[in-house]
Design a binder for these strands. Structure first.
Lengths: 245, 245
DNA sequence: GCAAAAGTGTTGGAAATACACCCATGT
DNA sequence: ACATGGGTGTATTTCCAACACTTTTGC
Protein backbone atom coordinates (compact mmCIF):
# COMPACT_ATOMS: atom_id res chain seq x y z
CA UNK A 1 0.00 0.00 0.00
CA UNK A 2 1.50 3.26 -1.13
CA UNK A 3 0.04 5.33 1.68
CA UNK A 4 1.79 3.11 4.18
CA UNK A 5 5.17 3.62 2.51
CA UNK A 6 4.69 7.35 2.42
CA UNK A 7 3.99 7.41 6.10
CA UNK A 8 7.01 5.31 6.84
CA UNK A 9 9.27 7.69 4.96
CA UNK A 10 7.62 10.52 6.81
CA UNK A 11 8.15 8.85 10.12
CA UNK A 12 11.82 8.34 9.46
CA UNK A 13 12.26 11.91 8.37
CA UNK A 14 10.41 13.16 11.41
CA UNK A 15 12.52 11.07 13.72
CA UNK A 16 15.72 12.42 12.18
CA UNK A 17 14.54 16.01 12.56
CA UNK A 18 13.56 15.50 16.19
CA UNK A 19 16.95 13.98 16.97
CA UNK A 20 18.66 16.93 15.36
CA UNK A 21 16.56 19.35 17.38
CA UNK A 22 17.44 17.54 20.54
CA UNK A 23 21.14 17.44 19.79
CA UNK A 24 21.23 21.14 19.03
CA UNK A 25 19.10 22.13 22.00
CA UNK A 26 16.60 23.78 19.71
CA UNK A 27 12.90 24.07 20.32
CA UNK A 28 10.74 22.55 17.64
CA UNK A 29 7.36 23.93 16.75
CA UNK A 30 4.38 21.92 15.64
CA UNK A 31 0.68 22.24 15.04
CA UNK A 32 -1.84 19.75 16.37
CA UNK A 33 -5.35 19.67 14.97
CA UNK A 34 -8.31 18.65 17.03
CA UNK A 35 -10.78 17.78 14.31
CA UNK A 36 -14.30 17.46 15.59
CA UNK A 37 -17.14 15.82 13.77
CA UNK A 38 -20.73 15.00 14.67
CA UNK A 39 -22.32 11.68 13.82
CA UNK A 40 -24.94 9.42 15.34
CA UNK A 41 -25.73 12.19 17.80
CA UNK A 42 -22.24 12.08 19.24
CA UNK A 43 -19.33 14.44 19.18
CA UNK A 44 -16.36 12.70 17.61
CA UNK A 45 -12.73 13.47 17.01
CA UNK A 46 -10.32 12.28 14.35
CA UNK A 47 -7.29 10.41 15.70
CA UNK A 48 -4.38 8.31 14.51
CA UNK A 49 -2.07 5.84 16.15
CA UNK A 50 1.00 7.57 17.43
CA UNK A 51 4.20 7.43 15.39
CA UNK A 52 6.34 6.92 18.46
CA UNK A 53 7.13 3.52 19.82
CA UNK A 54 6.70 4.77 23.34
CA UNK A 55 3.07 5.49 22.57
CA UNK A 56 2.42 2.66 20.13
CA UNK A 57 -0.79 1.66 21.86
CA UNK A 58 -2.14 5.17 22.25
CA UNK A 59 -4.13 7.48 20.06
CA UNK A 60 -2.83 10.82 19.00
CA UNK A 61 -4.02 14.05 17.42
CA UNK A 62 -3.10 14.94 13.86
CA UNK A 63 -0.02 17.06 13.98
CA UNK A 64 3.14 17.95 12.17
CA UNK A 65 6.14 20.21 12.49
CA UNK A 66 5.64 23.66 11.03
CA UNK A 67 7.64 24.41 7.91
CA UNK A 68 9.89 27.40 7.94
CA UNK A 69 8.04 29.08 5.12
CA UNK A 70 4.42 28.56 6.19
CA UNK A 71 2.24 30.46 8.64
CA UNK A 72 0.80 28.57 11.60
CA UNK A 73 -2.65 28.71 10.05
CA UNK A 74 -1.31 27.38 6.80
CA UNK A 75 0.30 24.49 8.61
CA UNK A 76 -3.01 23.68 10.26
CA UNK A 77 -4.87 23.81 6.95
CA UNK A 78 -2.18 21.67 5.35
CA UNK A 79 -2.51 18.97 7.98
CA UNK A 80 -6.25 19.02 7.66
CA UNK A 81 -6.09 18.81 3.88
CA UNK A 82 -3.58 15.98 3.93
CA UNK A 83 -5.73 13.91 6.22
CA UNK A 84 -9.29 14.69 5.29
CA UNK A 85 -9.02 16.16 1.83
CA UNK A 86 -11.05 19.13 3.01
CA UNK A 87 -10.40 22.78 2.43
CA UNK A 88 -13.48 24.72 3.33
CA UNK A 89 -13.65 24.03 7.00
CA UNK A 90 -13.86 25.96 10.19
CA UNK A 91 -10.47 26.18 11.85
CA UNK A 92 -9.25 28.30 14.70
CA UNK A 93 -6.28 28.47 17.00
CA UNK A 94 -7.01 27.52 20.58
CA UNK A 95 -3.88 27.47 22.68
CA UNK A 96 -0.17 26.76 22.78
CA UNK A 97 1.22 23.84 24.76
CA UNK A 98 4.85 24.22 25.59
CA UNK A 99 5.82 22.33 28.71
CA UNK A 100 9.40 21.17 28.68
CA UNK A 101 8.71 17.46 28.97
CA UNK A 102 5.63 17.15 26.81
CA UNK A 103 7.37 15.41 23.93
CA UNK A 104 9.71 12.56 24.81
CA UNK A 105 11.95 12.87 21.75
CA UNK A 106 12.77 16.57 21.86
CA UNK A 107 11.55 19.92 23.08
CA UNK A 108 8.52 20.70 20.94
CA UNK A 109 6.08 23.52 21.47
CA UNK A 110 2.77 22.85 19.80
CA UNK A 111 -0.06 25.13 18.79
CA UNK A 112 -3.43 23.44 19.10
CA UNK A 113 -6.02 24.18 16.45
CA UNK A 114 -9.64 23.24 16.60
CA UNK A 115 -11.44 22.30 13.44
CA UNK A 116 -15.06 21.44 12.78
CA UNK A 117 -16.06 19.35 9.83
CA UNK A 118 -19.08 17.59 8.52
CA UNK A 119 -18.24 13.90 8.66
CA UNK A 120 -20.61 13.04 5.82
CA UNK A 121 -19.08 15.51 3.40
CA UNK A 122 -15.63 14.11 3.38
CA UNK A 123 -13.76 10.93 2.77
CA UNK A 124 -10.66 10.19 4.74
CA UNK A 125 -7.85 10.28 2.21
CA UNK A 126 -5.19 8.32 3.98
CA UNK A 127 -6.02 5.48 6.27
CA UNK A 128 -2.46 5.04 7.43
CA UNK A 129 -1.95 4.99 11.18
CA UNK A 130 -5.51 3.74 11.58
CA UNK A 131 -6.98 7.16 11.09
CA UNK A 132 -10.55 7.23 12.22
CA UNK A 133 -13.27 8.81 14.29
CA UNK A 134 -13.61 8.31 18.01
CA UNK A 135 -16.42 9.20 20.33
CA UNK A 136 -15.28 11.95 22.66
CA UNK A 137 -16.96 10.26 25.57
CA UNK A 138 -14.97 7.06 25.28
CA UNK A 139 -11.47 8.49 25.02
CA UNK A 140 -9.32 8.05 28.10
CA UNK A 141 -5.56 7.90 27.66
CA UNK A 142 -3.80 9.44 24.69
CA UNK A 143 -0.22 9.93 23.50
CA UNK A 144 1.83 12.90 24.69
CA UNK A 145 -0.32 15.52 26.43
CA UNK A 146 -2.95 15.08 23.78
CA UNK A 147 -5.71 14.23 26.20
CA UNK A 148 -5.17 17.57 27.88
CA UNK A 149 -5.18 19.31 24.51
CA UNK A 150 -8.36 17.51 23.52
CA UNK A 151 -10.07 18.45 26.80
CA UNK A 152 -9.01 22.06 26.42
CA UNK A 153 -10.40 22.13 22.90
CA UNK A 154 -13.66 20.55 24.00
CA UNK A 155 -14.11 23.18 26.69
CA UNK A 156 -13.18 25.84 24.18
CA UNK A 157 -15.83 24.48 21.83
CA UNK A 158 -18.48 24.38 24.54
CA UNK A 159 -17.96 28.04 25.23
CA UNK A 160 -17.44 29.09 21.65
CA UNK A 161 -20.52 27.37 20.28
CA UNK A 162 -22.72 29.43 22.55
CA UNK A 163 -21.29 32.72 21.42
CA UNK A 164 -20.70 32.09 17.73
CA UNK A 165 -22.47 30.12 15.04
CA UNK A 166 -19.81 27.46 14.61
CA UNK A 167 -22.03 24.50 15.15
CA UNK A 168 -23.42 24.54 11.65
CA UNK A 169 -20.05 23.42 10.29
CA UNK A 170 -20.67 20.07 11.92
CA UNK A 171 -24.05 19.58 10.27
CA UNK A 172 -25.12 19.08 6.68
CA UNK A 173 -26.10 22.26 4.84
CA UNK A 174 -29.73 21.45 5.44
CA UNK A 175 -30.68 20.23 8.84
CA UNK A 176 -33.68 19.84 11.09
CA UNK A 177 -34.00 21.66 14.37
CA UNK A 178 -33.84 18.33 16.11
CA UNK A 179 -30.38 17.72 14.63
CA UNK A 180 -29.27 21.16 15.70
CA UNK A 181 -30.50 20.57 19.21
CA UNK A 182 -28.86 17.15 19.39
CA UNK A 183 -25.63 18.81 18.37
CA UNK A 184 -25.82 21.37 21.16
CA UNK A 185 -26.81 18.78 23.69
CA UNK A 186 -23.97 16.49 22.69
CA UNK A 187 -21.33 19.21 22.82
CA UNK A 188 -22.55 20.84 26.00
CA UNK A 189 -23.52 17.61 27.75
CA UNK A 190 -26.88 19.01 28.82
CA UNK A 191 -30.54 18.42 28.08
CA UNK A 192 -32.42 21.36 26.61
CA UNK A 193 -36.10 22.14 26.41
CA UNK A 194 -37.22 21.67 22.83
CA UNK A 195 -39.68 24.55 22.73
CA UNK A 196 -37.31 27.04 24.26
CA UNK A 197 -34.52 25.90 22.00
CA UNK A 198 -36.62 26.55 18.92
CA UNK A 199 -37.84 29.87 20.22
CA UNK A 200 -34.25 30.90 20.83
CA UNK A 201 -33.01 30.10 17.34
CA UNK A 202 -36.03 31.57 15.61
CA UNK A 203 -35.71 34.76 17.60
CA UNK A 204 -32.04 35.02 16.67
CA UNK A 205 -33.21 35.04 13.07
CA UNK A 206 -30.30 33.22 11.47
CA UNK A 207 -32.12 30.21 10.09
CA UNK A 208 -33.66 30.03 6.66
CA UNK A 209 -36.58 27.77 5.90
CA UNK A 210 -35.72 25.60 2.90
CA UNK A 211 -39.34 24.45 2.48
CA UNK A 212 -37.98 20.94 2.38
CA UNK A 213 -38.55 18.14 4.86
CA UNK A 214 -36.54 15.32 6.32
CA UNK A 215 -36.75 12.30 4.04
CA UNK A 216 -37.08 8.68 5.13
CA UNK A 217 -38.08 9.13 8.73
CA UNK A 218 -40.61 6.80 10.32
CA UNK A 219 -42.59 9.68 11.77
CA UNK A 220 -43.72 13.15 10.92
CA UNK A 221 -40.81 14.72 9.00
CA UNK A 222 -39.29 17.91 10.34
CA UNK A 223 -38.62 21.02 8.30
CA UNK A 224 -35.10 21.50 7.03
CA UNK A 225 -33.31 24.79 7.61
CA UNK A 226 -30.13 26.42 6.39
CA UNK A 227 -27.88 28.73 8.33
CA UNK A 228 -28.09 32.15 6.76
CA UNK A 229 -24.69 33.69 7.12
CA UNK A 230 -25.70 37.02 5.58
CA UNK A 231 -28.43 37.54 8.14
CA UNK A 232 -25.95 36.73 10.85
CA UNK A 233 -23.30 39.06 9.50
CA UNK A 234 -25.73 41.96 9.27
CA UNK A 235 -27.01 41.58 12.80
CA UNK A 236 -25.84 44.26 15.13
CA UNK A 237 -23.97 42.45 17.81
CA UNK A 238 -24.41 43.74 21.30
CA UNK A 239 -21.00 44.80 22.50
CA UNK A 240 -21.75 44.71 26.19
CA UNK A 241 -22.54 41.30 27.67
CA UNK A 242 -22.76 42.24 31.30
CA UNK A 243 -20.40 41.46 34.12
CA UNK A 244 -20.98 38.02 35.56
CA UNK A 245 -18.66 35.72 37.38
CA UNK B 1 25.24 52.84 33.43
CA UNK B 2 25.38 49.15 34.20
CA UNK B 3 21.89 48.39 33.06
CA UNK B 4 22.67 49.81 29.67
CA UNK B 5 25.76 47.63 29.27
CA UNK B 6 23.83 44.54 30.27
CA UNK B 7 21.25 45.30 27.66
CA UNK B 8 23.86 45.87 25.04
CA UNK B 9 25.39 42.49 25.70
CA UNK B 10 21.94 41.02 25.58
CA UNK B 11 21.21 42.71 22.33
CA UNK B 12 24.37 41.40 20.70
CA UNK B 13 23.66 37.92 21.91
CA UNK B 14 20.10 38.10 20.64
CA UNK B 15 21.23 39.32 17.27
CA UNK B 16 23.70 36.46 16.97
CA UNK B 17 21.06 33.90 17.84
CA UNK B 18 18.58 35.31 15.37
CA UNK B 19 21.18 35.23 12.60
CA UNK B 20 21.95 31.65 13.39
CA UNK B 21 18.27 30.74 13.28
CA UNK B 22 17.90 32.41 9.94
CA UNK B 23 20.95 30.71 8.45
CA UNK B 24 19.77 27.31 9.59
CA UNK B 25 16.19 27.85 8.49
CA UNK B 26 14.98 27.19 12.00
CA UNK B 27 11.93 28.69 13.60
CA UNK B 28 12.60 30.63 16.77
CA UNK B 29 10.12 30.79 19.60
CA UNK B 30 9.58 33.75 21.85
CA UNK B 31 7.20 35.04 24.46
CA UNK B 32 5.83 38.58 24.42
CA UNK B 33 4.19 40.02 27.50
CA UNK B 34 1.43 42.57 27.31
CA UNK B 35 1.62 44.04 30.79
CA UNK B 36 -1.42 46.08 31.66
CA UNK B 37 -1.65 48.55 34.50
CA UNK B 38 -4.29 51.01 35.64
CA UNK B 39 -3.46 54.51 36.74
CA UNK B 40 -5.10 57.93 36.63
CA UNK B 41 -8.25 56.18 35.45
CA UNK B 42 -6.58 54.95 32.32
CA UNK B 43 -5.56 51.54 31.09
CA UNK B 44 -1.83 51.50 30.46
CA UNK B 45 0.70 49.11 29.03
CA UNK B 46 4.40 48.67 29.69
CA UNK B 47 6.61 49.16 26.62
CA UNK B 48 10.24 49.51 25.68
CA UNK B 49 12.07 50.88 22.69
CA UNK B 50 12.73 48.17 20.18
CA UNK B 51 16.17 46.55 20.07
CA UNK B 52 16.17 46.46 16.29
CA UNK B 53 17.51 49.31 14.23
CA UNK B 54 14.68 48.91 11.78
CA UNK B 55 12.26 49.82 14.54
CA UNK B 56 14.44 52.23 16.47
CA UNK B 57 11.69 54.84 16.71
CA UNK B 58 8.95 52.41 17.64
CA UNK B 59 7.73 50.95 20.88
CA UNK B 60 7.71 47.26 21.50
CA UNK B 61 6.30 44.73 23.93
CA UNK B 62 8.52 43.00 26.46
CA UNK B 63 9.64 39.75 24.95
CA UNK B 64 12.45 37.28 24.80
CA UNK B 65 13.33 33.98 23.20
CA UNK B 66 12.22 30.95 25.19
CA UNK B 67 15.03 28.93 26.72
CA UNK B 68 15.22 25.29 25.89
CA UNK B 69 14.75 24.25 29.48
CA UNK B 70 11.87 26.49 30.54
CA UNK B 71 8.13 26.18 30.03
CA UNK B 72 6.34 28.91 28.15
CA UNK B 73 4.72 30.11 31.37
CA UNK B 74 8.07 30.20 33.07
CA UNK B 75 9.49 32.29 30.26
CA UNK B 76 6.63 34.74 30.64
CA UNK B 77 7.12 34.98 34.40
CA UNK B 78 10.85 35.41 33.90
CA UNK B 79 10.38 38.32 31.52
CA UNK B 80 7.94 39.92 33.89
CA UNK B 81 10.25 39.47 36.85
CA UNK B 82 13.24 40.83 34.98
CA UNK B 83 11.40 43.97 34.00
CA UNK B 84 9.09 44.75 36.86
CA UNK B 85 10.55 42.82 39.77
CA UNK B 86 7.14 41.30 40.37
CA UNK B 87 6.27 37.72 41.02
CA UNK B 88 2.74 37.53 42.28
CA UNK B 89 0.87 38.75 39.27
CA UNK B 90 -1.92 37.60 37.08
CA UNK B 91 -0.58 36.13 33.87
CA UNK B 92 -2.27 34.14 31.17
CA UNK B 93 -1.59 33.00 27.65
CA UNK B 94 -3.65 34.70 24.99
CA UNK B 95 -2.61 33.65 21.53
CA UNK B 96 0.25 32.61 19.27
CA UNK B 97 1.42 34.84 16.46
CA UNK B 98 3.34 32.99 13.82
CA UNK B 99 3.12 34.69 10.44
CA UNK B 100 6.16 34.09 8.32
CA UNK B 101 7.18 37.70 7.90
CA UNK B 102 6.39 39.04 11.34
CA UNK B 103 10.00 39.35 12.48
CA UNK B 104 12.42 40.94 10.03
CA UNK B 105 15.55 39.18 11.31
CA UNK B 106 14.38 35.58 11.31
CA UNK B 107 11.32 33.37 11.49
CA UNK B 108 10.06 33.74 15.04
CA UNK B 109 6.78 32.44 16.39
CA UNK B 110 5.71 34.29 19.50
CA UNK B 111 3.27 33.40 22.22
CA UNK B 112 1.52 36.45 23.61
CA UNK B 113 0.85 36.58 27.33
CA UNK B 114 -1.33 39.07 29.08
CA UNK B 115 -0.40 40.22 32.54
CA UNK B 116 -2.17 42.51 34.97
CA UNK B 117 -0.28 44.37 37.64
CA UNK B 118 -0.89 47.10 40.14
CA UNK B 119 1.29 49.97 39.02
CA UNK B 120 1.59 51.37 42.53
CA UNK B 121 2.89 48.16 44.03
CA UNK B 122 5.95 47.83 41.92
CA UNK B 123 9.02 49.73 40.90
CA UNK B 124 10.43 49.27 37.45
CA UNK B 125 13.78 47.58 38.00
CA UNK B 126 15.55 48.34 34.77
CA UNK B 127 14.98 51.53 32.92
CA UNK B 128 17.02 50.48 29.91
CA UNK B 129 15.29 50.86 26.56
CA UNK B 130 13.17 53.63 28.03
CA UNK B 131 10.86 51.20 29.76
CA UNK B 132 7.71 52.92 30.84
CA UNK B 133 3.94 53.05 30.89
CA UNK B 134 1.86 54.19 27.95
CA UNK B 135 -1.81 55.01 27.75
CA UNK B 136 -3.53 52.43 25.61
CA UNK B 137 -5.56 55.11 23.92
CA UNK B 138 -2.57 56.99 22.59
CA UNK B 139 -0.63 54.12 21.04
CA UNK B 140 -0.62 53.99 17.28
CA UNK B 141 2.31 52.37 15.52
CA UNK B 142 4.49 49.78 17.19
CA UNK B 143 7.43 47.56 16.24
CA UNK B 144 6.86 44.18 14.55
CA UNK B 145 3.21 43.11 14.71
CA UNK B 146 3.03 44.28 18.29
CA UNK B 147 0.14 46.64 17.73
CA UNK B 148 -1.91 43.71 16.53
CA UNK B 149 -0.84 41.68 19.55
CA UNK B 150 -1.70 44.55 21.87
CA UNK B 151 -5.13 44.98 20.30
CA UNK B 152 -5.80 41.27 20.53
CA UNK B 153 -4.87 41.31 24.20
CA UNK B 154 -7.03 44.33 24.88
CA UNK B 155 -10.02 42.61 23.31
CA UNK B 156 -9.20 39.48 25.25
CA UNK B 157 -9.13 41.53 28.43
CA UNK B 158 -12.43 43.20 27.67
CA UNK B 159 -14.09 39.85 27.34
CA UNK B 160 -12.25 38.15 30.13
CA UNK B 161 -12.84 40.84 32.72
CA UNK B 162 -16.58 40.37 32.39
CA UNK B 163 -16.43 36.65 33.00
CA UNK B 164 -13.69 36.39 35.59
CA UNK B 165 -12.54 38.50 38.49
CA UNK B 166 -9.25 39.60 36.98
CA UNK B 167 -9.75 43.28 37.34
CA UNK B 168 -8.80 43.34 41.00
CA UNK B 169 -5.18 42.62 40.07
CA UNK B 170 -5.02 46.10 38.60
CA UNK B 171 -6.24 47.80 41.77
CA UNK B 172 -4.79 48.19 45.25
CA UNK B 173 -5.88 45.54 47.74
CA UNK B 174 -8.41 47.97 49.16
CA UNK B 175 -10.42 49.98 46.70
CA UNK B 176 -13.59 51.99 46.48
CA UNK B 177 -16.45 51.03 44.24
CA UNK B 178 -15.80 54.16 42.25
CA UNK B 179 -12.29 52.93 41.46
CA UNK B 180 -13.64 49.56 40.45
CA UNK B 181 -16.18 51.15 38.18
CA UNK B 182 -13.59 53.47 36.64
CA UNK B 183 -11.52 50.40 35.90
CA UNK B 184 -14.34 48.65 34.09
CA UNK B 185 -15.28 51.76 32.20
CA UNK B 186 -11.69 52.35 31.10
CA UNK B 187 -11.15 48.80 29.92
CA UNK B 188 -14.50 48.38 28.24
CA UNK B 189 -14.68 51.91 26.86
CA UNK B 190 -18.25 52.34 28.05
CA UNK B 191 -20.12 54.40 30.63
CA UNK B 192 -21.97 52.41 33.25
CA UNK B 193 -24.81 53.28 35.57
CA UNK B 194 -23.42 53.69 39.07
CA UNK B 195 -26.37 52.19 40.91
CA UNK B 196 -26.66 49.17 38.67
CA UNK B 197 -22.92 48.63 38.83
CA UNK B 198 -23.02 48.54 42.64
CA UNK B 199 -26.07 46.34 42.70
CA UNK B 200 -24.33 43.91 40.37
CA UNK B 201 -21.19 43.57 42.44
CA UNK B 202 -23.00 43.38 45.75
CA UNK B 203 -25.32 40.72 44.41
CA UNK B 204 -22.34 38.73 43.17
CA UNK B 205 -21.17 38.68 46.76
CA UNK B 206 -17.44 38.75 46.17
CA UNK B 207 -16.60 42.03 47.91
CA UNK B 208 -15.71 42.34 51.55
CA UNK B 209 -16.33 45.53 53.48
CA UNK B 210 -13.07 46.61 55.14
CA UNK B 211 -14.85 49.17 57.35
CA UNK B 212 -12.28 51.67 56.16
CA UNK B 213 -12.81 54.74 54.05
CA UNK B 214 -10.93 56.57 51.35
CA UNK B 215 -8.46 58.98 52.91
CA UNK B 216 -7.68 62.49 51.70
CA UNK B 217 -10.55 63.04 49.34
CA UNK B 218 -12.14 66.50 49.08
CA UNK B 219 -15.63 65.07 49.36
CA UNK B 220 -17.52 62.38 51.15
CA UNK B 221 -15.15 59.39 51.34
CA UNK B 222 -16.25 56.08 49.90
CA UNK B 223 -16.03 52.76 51.64
CA UNK B 224 -13.08 50.56 50.85
CA UNK B 225 -13.61 46.96 49.84
CA UNK B 226 -11.44 43.90 49.32
CA UNK B 227 -11.97 41.15 46.80
CA UNK B 228 -12.81 37.99 48.70
CA UNK B 229 -11.32 35.14 46.73
CA UNK B 230 -12.69 32.45 49.01
CA UNK B 231 -16.24 33.59 48.51
CA UNK B 232 -15.64 33.61 44.80
CA UNK B 233 -14.12 30.16 44.76
CA UNK B 234 -17.00 28.67 46.69
CA UNK B 235 -19.69 30.12 44.48
CA UNK B 236 -21.39 27.62 42.29
CA UNK B 237 -20.75 28.79 38.83
CA UNK B 238 -23.57 28.34 36.38
CA UNK B 239 -22.30 26.11 33.65
CA UNK B 240 -24.84 27.03 31.04
CA UNK B 241 -24.72 30.62 29.79
CA UNK B 242 -27.32 30.42 27.09
CA UNK B 243 -26.85 30.45 23.37
CA UNK B 244 -26.53 33.96 22.02
CA UNK B 245 -24.88 35.21 18.88
C1' DG C 1 -23.39 76.88 52.71
C1' DC C 2 -21.54 75.03 48.75
C1' DA C 3 -19.18 71.79 45.79
C1' DA C 4 -18.47 66.93 44.89
C1' DA C 5 -19.08 62.53 45.03
C1' DA C 6 -21.31 58.63 48.05
C1' DG C 7 -25.06 56.11 48.84
C1' DT C 8 -29.66 54.24 48.05
C1' DG C 9 -35.01 51.83 45.59
C1' DT C 10 -38.46 51.39 42.44
C1' DT C 11 -40.54 50.33 38.34
C1' DG C 12 -41.43 48.61 33.60
C1' DG C 13 -39.99 45.70 30.04
C1' DA C 14 -37.45 41.87 28.13
C1' DA C 15 -35.83 37.48 28.33
C1' DA C 16 -35.55 32.91 30.40
C1' DT C 17 -37.93 29.12 32.24
C1' DA C 18 -41.28 25.66 33.00
C1' DC C 19 -44.72 23.17 31.27
C1' DA C 20 -48.75 19.93 28.05
C1' DC C 21 -51.35 19.17 24.20
C1' DC C 22 -52.45 18.38 19.27
C1' DC C 23 -50.49 17.12 14.57
C1' DA C 24 -48.48 14.65 10.64
C1' DT C 25 -46.37 10.69 9.04
C1' DG C 26 -45.03 5.63 8.41
C1' DT C 27 -46.12 1.15 9.74
C1' DA D 1 -55.02 2.56 15.16
C1' DC D 2 -50.84 3.40 17.08
C1' DA D 3 -46.19 4.80 17.75
C1' DT D 4 -42.98 8.41 17.02
C1' DG D 5 -41.31 12.62 17.08
C1' DG D 6 -42.83 17.53 15.08
C1' DG D 7 -44.81 21.61 16.12
C1' DT D 8 -46.91 25.23 19.01
C1' DG D 9 -48.51 29.00 23.35
C1' DT D 10 -48.89 30.76 27.88
C1' DA D 11 -48.04 31.93 32.64
C1' DT D 12 -44.38 32.85 35.83
C1' DT D 13 -40.23 34.45 37.23
C1' DT D 14 -35.94 36.52 36.88
C1' DC D 15 -32.93 39.76 35.23
C1' DC D 16 -31.69 44.20 33.29
C1' DA D 17 -32.15 49.24 32.37
C1' DA D 18 -33.61 53.51 33.37
C1' DC D 19 -33.99 56.94 36.45
C1' DA D 20 -33.40 61.24 41.05
C1' DC D 21 -32.93 62.50 45.49
C1' DT D 22 -30.63 62.60 50.11
C1' DT D 23 -26.17 62.25 52.71
C1' DT D 24 -21.51 63.11 54.06
C1' DT D 25 -17.36 65.29 53.87
C1' DG D 26 -13.77 69.14 52.85
C1' DC D 27 -13.26 73.70 51.92
Amino acid sequence: MIAKDIMTTRQKKLKAILEELKDDGIIGISVDCVIFGFDENELKVLLIKSDLEKYEDRWSLLGDLVNNQEDLNQAAYRILKERTGMNDVYLEEVKAFGEVGRHPAARVVTIAYCSLINIRHHQLKIHANELHWHKISSITKMAFDHKKILDTCHEWLQKRIQEHPLGFSLLPKKFSLRELQNLYEAILCVKLDRRNFRKKFFSMDVLEDTREFEPDVPHRPGKLYKFNYEKYRKKERKKWFGIDF
